[in-house]
Write a protein that binds this DNA or RNA. Structure first.
Lengths: 232, 232
DNA sequence: CGATTTTTTGATGAGTTTCAAATGATGTGG
DNA sequence: CCACATCATTTGAAACTCATCAAAAAATCG
């Protein structure tokens, strides 16, 4: 099969020749350097995507300039499917945090892709459902928990979402496979970089986290779990 | 057509006889008194629903007992579609706040209903998408805004969602067509009933809101809008 | 009219943001 | 290869918002 742009994509693994060609039609592979934006909040929603490699962050900015990181996109996930929801424009900005590569379809291929790969419908609906769940979970955390457990929850969630991509750190801990600043973590946990810095510094002192500039090393996941429950 | 359980449901208005019968198969109409729960967080997700009349509130409770109102269900909306997301159990509790009636399908009818009324797929995907949007919006508000603008945003959103059901109040304002306590509003805005009470009392004094026990009367929407933007 | 529910109001303190500044890392160009 | 600019993080102190505790007032219901 010439230029099989879909190889290595689990979602399309079971796809036979004809359907495969339908899905691949008008698809291209885009690549992004760290900091580059794939689309910006408010852009017309004329494409949808699947992340092949790398890591993206999806952010929303308020009218007052405060920003919130809505989520991190890991390889193998669909994203930017605003077209599927009949949206005119993207509700968020999507930018690479490491070198990344993504499959890009023009908006009008959405129906074609769905009917060629019906399992994709299921997969997209479930993906949205999970995102909704996660949003509700975060909503609950944000409003009922204090800063420390929120950050603990966040780090554990990021670790789970990174899945097997999370690289094992030397001392038995786990390191997130992409750089995150304290500011990023603050934007994800609804806090400020100052508060996050204080919290994480204290965890480093206790040996719960490893230290590193723009790195997150979870040395002792069990201790973090404990912090999510008990507040202190 | 005998016992046409689907009449008055916009979603199924354009449905012809045969499809209509498929959708109606095994459907029943449930009714609920205020305070009665349709399903409780953790229950097996064996049914899905469409609200015909009344008003429901969907709540989640944390391990520590704090509760959060996820949303209010208005007539004409699908809800409890956990089955569609392949969930085993409902992630929230759903209870009536006024006398309500809802269409109830057993879980296994989901696929049948979808294929008989394909537009429903679209409508459900969009509904979930909107909920996701709303969740993100609330997430942003919760984390970046202070209590007063959060409550203001909430009230305006409830007004919009209630749509034409919102009854016009005598003095030119709008009243939400269902009772809400300060505690409810606190649970929706991530605050406490004390804080909400203070905030709303001050708005009443300014003439932005009308007053009433378990009532929400928006006397001056424009003033509320202003509060959402400027904080003060 | 007494019991219950809902709302109001005051006082206090904890937790976070904000403001300010210093320290530590990283990379670059001369 | 070092000096310097930049970026990231840490830390301190003060201000402030909001949750909590406590209690009373107001509305509703039987």
């Amino acid at each position: 099969m010439p230029d099989d742009i879909l190889s290595d994509i689990p979602q399309f693994a079971g796809l036979a020749g004809p359907e495969r060609r339908v899905v691949a039609a008008e698809t291209r592979l885009g690549s992004l350097a760290p900091g580059e934006a794939l689309f910006v909040q408010g852009d017309p929603a004329d494409r949808f995507f699947l992340l092949k490699d790398g890591r993206l962050k999806v952010t929303q900015v308020t009218a007052e300039g405060q920003s919130l990181i809505v989520r991190i996109v890991n390889p193998g996930e669909f994203f930017g499917f605003a077209p599927a929801l009949q949206r005119e424009s993207y509700p968020a900005t999507c930018e690479a945090i490491v070198d990344s590569a993504a499959l890009v379809w023009p908006r009008h291929r959405w129906e074609a892709v769905l009917s060629a790969a019906p399992s994709v419908t299921q997969s997209v609906v479930q993906a949205i459902g999970r995102k909704l769940d996660e949003a509700h979970t975060r909503l609950r955390e944000m409003t009922t928990e204090e800063a420390a457990p929120r950050v603990a929850h966040l780090l554990l969630r990021l670790q789970v979402e990174a899945g097997d991509h999370a690289t094992a750190a030397p001392d038995g801990g786990v390191e997130l496979p992409y750089p995150l600043t304290r500011q990023d973590i603050a934007d994800m946990s609804g806090s400020t970089l100052h508060t996050v810095s204080r919290i994480m510094a204290s965890w480093e002192a206790q040996g719960v986290l490893g230290r590193g500039r723009r790195k997150v090393i979870i040395a002792d996941p069990a201790a973090l779990e404990k912090i999510t429950a008990t507040e202190e």
